[in-house]
Nucleic acid binder design. Structure first.
Lengths: 358, 358
DNA sequence: CTGTTAGCGCCTTCAC
DNA sequence: GTGAAGGCGCTAACAG
C-alpha cells in the first residue's frame, strides 16, 4: 500500500492539521512515501538506506518537525542516552564544577546528564538508585554522602548499571576517581610547622568519607614525623557544612588554649570557619594563620588571599565521564581506580604563630 | 490461567533466577496469583483493590524487588513525572539555589527535577527544548540566556508543555516569576549619591536580559532625578561573566577620570570586579566604594563586608515550582506574573568619594 | 473487585 | 534497499 506518493487525501490532511501534537514515525513515513521501518533506519543512521530515500525522509521529518519519542525508543532498546549524577549538594560549587566537567565530555557523545541532589540523605540516595533503575539510565556518576551507610551501596550494587564512584573508599566493583588528600594535607601541616606553629586546629569532614579520613590521617602523620604531640581537642571532624565549620572554629578559638593556626578542610567548612574568624575580629595572619580547601575562587577574593588545598574538580568530572563512556562503549576490563593530584596554593594567610588573644 | 498459586514449575524458577535483571509486572502478577492489570492498579494506588489482594501483590513486588519500567509507563500515559530546569550556568550559585528551591517543592509531589545547563548558548537551549519534547517532560522551568534570540522562544512556544519563565520579559503565554530590580538599584545609586559620589561605575548584564536592562534603567533614572549627568563611559553592560566584570572594572579604574564607586550588578560580575579592585590594590571603601549583587554569601565573607543587592533565589525556585505544579494539576487560568522582592543589604563597603589614585 | 484485551511508538528480524 | 509484522512493559477500557 503506497498511497502516499500521491497528495494526502483530504481526510488525512485534516487529521494531520488537527492533531500533530505528537508526530509519529508513521506520519513521517506516510508523507515520505515509505514505511515506518525506513524512517527508523534513517533516524538511527542505519547505513543501508538509499541516499534518495534518506533525503525524502529527512525532508518529511523536518517539515513535520518530527522528534522520536524517547520513551518508545527506550522501551525497545533499553537505552535512554541519559546519565545520572548523584551529588550531595547542588548548591555547592565543588559539585557544580564536577557536573560541568562531566557535561563537557557527555554532551558531545550525545548523552544527557541528569544531576540530582541527595542533600546528604542516604534515603534520597536510595530513592535515586531506584529512579535510575526505573528509568533505565545508561550510567551513573555517584558521590555518596556517607561511606558507612549500607543501604545506598547495596542498592547500587544490584543495579546492573555501570557507575563511576567519586572519591570514596567503598567495596564496589565500579570504577573510581579519587582525589589526592594525604600528600597535600601533610604539606600544609609541615608548612605551618615550618612557620613555628605547634597548635594547629583541623576542621574537616568525618571519617565516614574518604576526604575527611585521609585529611585527619595526614594531620596525625605529619605530627608524628615532626615529633609534635596531637592535642585531640584541636581535631574536629564531623559534618561537611558551613555551620559546622563556623561553630568548630568558634569553639576552638574560644577555648583556654586556642590554636595559632586553623586548617578548614572542606568547601563548606572553609567559609564557615572564615566567618567565625571575621566574627571574632581576628586578623589573618596577624592573630591567626588560616588554610582553606576546595574553593580556590573564594580563597582568591577574600582579603588576604588564603592558602588552600585545591583540586581541579572539572577534571574530576571529565575523567569520570570518560571512564563511564568507555564502559558504555563496551569496555569490559577490571575495575579502575584513578588518583587525581591536588595542589597547595600559597596565599598570604599564614604567618608566625601568635596566640589569638595574646 | 492461574498456575501461580502453586509453586512455580522448575523451568520458570530457572528462568526467574537466571534473568530477573528486569522484573516485569507479569512476574509479580504470577507470583501473587493475579493478573498484570491488578499489579498495575496496586502500583498506581487505584482505590478499588481488595486489601488482601493488595497485600499479596505488595509482598510479591518486594520479594522480587519490582520497579515499574518508567519508559513503558511513559509511553502509555504520556507522563514522565519529570520536570526540566534549563539554566544558563550550573556552576553559578544563584541558579543552584533556585534549583534547590524547586526541588524542595517538587520532590514531595514525586516529580524528579532534571537540571540542564545551556552554558548561555541559544543552540543548547533549542536542543534542550527538543529533548524535553522527545522525553515528554511534564513541565519546564526556564531561565533563558538571551531574550532577543528568537529560536529558543519559538521552540518553546510550540512545545505544548507547561513552563514557568524566570526573570525575562518575553512574549510567551507561560507563567512568569520576576525579581525586582528597579527599586533596589535606584536605592543603591541614591545611597551612593548621599555619600557624595557623582561618578558611579555600573557593570551589569546587557539589555538583552531583563536584569541588565532594568538595572541600567534604574541607574539612569536615579541620575535623572538627582540631576546628575550620566557619563556613558561609566556604564558597561554586556556579558554576565566574571571575566567581563574584571575587565570592565580594570578599564574604568584605569581611565583618565575613574569612578569613585562601582556597582557590580551580577553574581559573576561581582567577584570579577572585586578581583580587579584587589589586583589594583585599592582599599574598600577608602580608595573606592563598592556594591555587589546576588551573592550574599560572598559579600559577607570578603573583608570588608560588601553592600549588595540581594534576592532570595530559593524562594524564586519554590514559587516557580508551585506555579508549575498548579498547572500540572489542571489549573487553567490566564498567564500569571509574580514579582518577588529584592533587598539592599548594607555592608561597610561604601564611604565618601575619593579618587582611587588621588 | 479483577481478568482480558488492545494498543502507546519504536526498532528489528525476516522476507522479498 | 525496503515493507511487514511482532513485541518491549505498561495502563485503561471493558466485561464479568
Amino acid at each position: 500500500m503506497r498511497v502516499a506518493r500521491r497528495p494526502l487525501p483530504e481526510s488525512d490532511r485534516n487529521r494531520l492539521s488537527q492533531a500533530p501534537l505528537t508526530v509519529t514515525a508513521e506520519d513521517v513515513a506516510r508523507l515520505a512515501g515509505v514505511s515506518a521501518g525506513t524512517v527508523s533506519r534513517v533516524v538511527s543512521h542505519h547505513p543501508r538506506v538509499a541516499p534518495e530515500t534518506r533525503a525524502r525522509v529527512v525532508a518529511a521529518m523536518e517539515s513535520l518537525r518530527y522528534l522520536p519519542n524517547a520513551a518508545a525508543r527506550a522501551m525497545r532498546t533499553n537505552r535512554t542516552n541519559t546519565i545520572g549524577f548523584l551529588l550531595p549538594d547542588i548548591s555547592n560549587r565543588v559539585f557544580a564544577e564536577v557536573a560541568f566537567g562531566v557535561e563537557q565530555v557527555l554532551a558531545p557523545a550525545d548523552y544527557l546528564l541528569m544531576s540530582v541532589s541527595s542533600n546528604r540523605s542516604p534515603e534520597r540516595e536510595c530513592a535515586f538508585f531506584d529512579y535510575a533503575a526505573q528509568r533505565r539510565m545508561d550510567g551513573l556518576i555517584v558521590s555518596l554522602s556517607d561511606e558507612t551507610a549500607p543501604a545506598p551501596l547495596e542498592r547500587l550494587s544490584r543495579l546492573d548499571i555501570p557507575a563511576v564512584i567519586l572519591d570514596r573508599d567503598v567495596a564496589e566493583g565500579s570504577d573510581h576517581v579519587l582525589s589526592e588528600h594525604l600528600r597535600p594535607m601533610m604539606m600544609v601541616v609541615e608548612h605551618l610547622f615550618a612557620h613555628g606553629h605547634r597548635r594547629i586546629g583541623l576542621i574537616s569532614a568525618s571519617d565516614r568519607i574518604r576526604p575527611g579520613r585521609e585529611r585527619v590521617r595526614a594531620y596525625r602523620e605529619a605530627h608524628r614525623r615532626a615529633g609534635v604531640a596531637v592535642d585531640e581537642a584541636l581535631i574536629r571532624a564531623a559534618i561537611q557544612s558551613e555551620a559546622f565549620g563556623r561553630q568548630s572554629a568558634l569553639d576552638m578559638l574560644g577555648a583556654d588554649s586556642p590554636p595559632t593556626a586553623i586548617v578548614a578542610a572542606g568547601s563548606d567548612i572553609f567559609p564557615g570557619a572564615l566567618r567565625a574568624i571575621r566574627t571574632l575580629g581576628l586578623a589573618i595572619p596577624g592573630a591567626i594563620s588560616f588554610v582553606g580547601a576546595d574553593d580556590q575562587k573564594l580563597a582568591e577574593l577574600v582579603g588576604p588571599e588564603i592558602t588552600t588545598v585545591d583540586r581541579d574538580m572539572g577534571e574530576v568530572g571529565r575523567v569520570a565521564a570518560r571512564l563511564l563512556l568507555e564502559r558504555l562503549r563496551g569496555h569490559d576490563g577490571p575495575q579502575r581506580r584513578l588518583l587525581l593530584p591536588s595542589t597547595v596554593s600559597l596565599g598570604r594567610s599564614v604567618g608566625p604563630p601568635r596566640s589569638p588573644f595574646g
